[in-house]
């Protein structure tokens, strides 16, 4: 008390104000950076963002034309990725939230594995895709079914999507587990009281109740997968394809990879700069609107959880 008395109240008030404004200022700095990235991208790209740009193929050595194959490729890749990642993610989340006991070493190991998957650098997934899917799986499939003819032992959209599915698996698991945990216990008890078994309860009460959470997880995964480039660098992304991929063993163009090659390998960087900005804008709009939807959904889940508990 004595020490405190020595400090005049006014100094304390000033210190408080300084602390508040200093930390508040850092928030402003971060938000300003976000806004400037967005602003510069929009300013640089919105003029080129036309309907033709979205629906046409690149022309004249990619100095003109649109980015349709890249949009299509990204969409198809994320679709296959979703099909692969979501069931795995949901089942693992159900295990973690419903079956695993607090002390279970197995469950703890899974949790740690999921966290590890979330922090492993994306380029490692690319290496894994190359070493496992292409060189191991692909080559063996070719040898077993196609007499060694090269079908699957090369980069293609399937291997790229599966690589990406691994990368986005933790995103799905975390989101779904969180949603499952918000299902109120009365609902589970009601189901059990009616004679349902645990699995029936999960299937008929828990899973339908966490549909929003599964959707959130899926959207977050798509948002993440659509923007990643490093995992597909050597597992399936192509510089240019003349035709859209119709088979799973074809290569594809992707928005993120397109930005990368356009900014480093196009014949005239300055002339194509608006196109690069426009492509960036498309990718940003895509990932942004997706994560915005996810944020809103998540917010609603949390609110529901608070109200019901």
């Amino acid at each position: 008390m004595k020490i405190k008395r020595k400090i005049p109240v006014s100094v304390r008030v000033v210190k408080d104000a300084v602390a508040t404004s200093l930390t508040g200022f850092t928030v402003l700095v971060i938000i300003a950076m976000i806004v400037s990235i967005l602003g510069i991208t929009i300013a640089g790209g919105w003029k080129s963002l036309t309907w033709e740009f979205l629906t046409q193929y690149p022309k004249d050595g990619m100095t003109r034309g649109g980015i349709f194959p890249a949009i299509f490729g990204t969409a198809l890749m994320t679709l296959i990725m979703t099909i692969a990642a979501v069931p795995f993610g949901v089942i693992t989340a159900v295990y973690l939230a419903e079956y695993a006991t607090e002390k279970s070493v197995f469950a703890k190991t899974i949790r740690f594995a999921v966290k590890t998957l979330a922090v492993v650098p994306s380029i490692i997934f690319g290496l894994f895709g190359l070493g496992f899917f292409i060189k191991f799986m692909g080559t063996n499939i070719d040898n077993a079914f196609f007499g060694g003819e090269l079908r699957w032992g090369q980069p293609n959209i399937l291997w790229a999507s599966l690589t990406m599915a691994l990368l986005t698996l933790p995103v799905v698991i975390v989101a779904v587990e969180e949603a499952i945990r918000t299902i109120p216990r009365d609902m589970r008890e009601a189901s059990m009281a009616l004679g349902a078994t645990k699995w029936q309860t999960i299937r008929n009460v828990v899973l339908p109740g966490s549909m929003t959470g599964i959707l959130t997880g899926t959207i977050l995964a798509i948002s993440r997968g659509a923007g990643e480039v490093a995992p597909i660098l050597f597992t399936g992304a192509a510089y240019y394809v003349a035709e859209l991929p119709v088979s799973l063993n074809q290569q594809f163009m992707s928005l993120g990879y397109h930005i990368y090659i356009m900014s480093t390998q196009s014949t005239n960087v300055d002339e194509t700069l608006p196109l690069q900005f426009a492509t960036t804008l498309v990718l940003l709009l895509l990932t942004f609107s997706l994560s915005l939807i996810a944020v809103i959904l998540r917010y609603r889940i949390r609110k529901k959880a608070i109200h019901s508990s």
Partner: peptide
């Protein structure tokens, strides 16, 4: 070492 000739040109520019 830059990932493309365009990146080299851009850098020199």
């Amino acid at each position: 070492t830059l990932p493309g000739t365009a990146a080299v040109v851009n850098a020199v520019k």
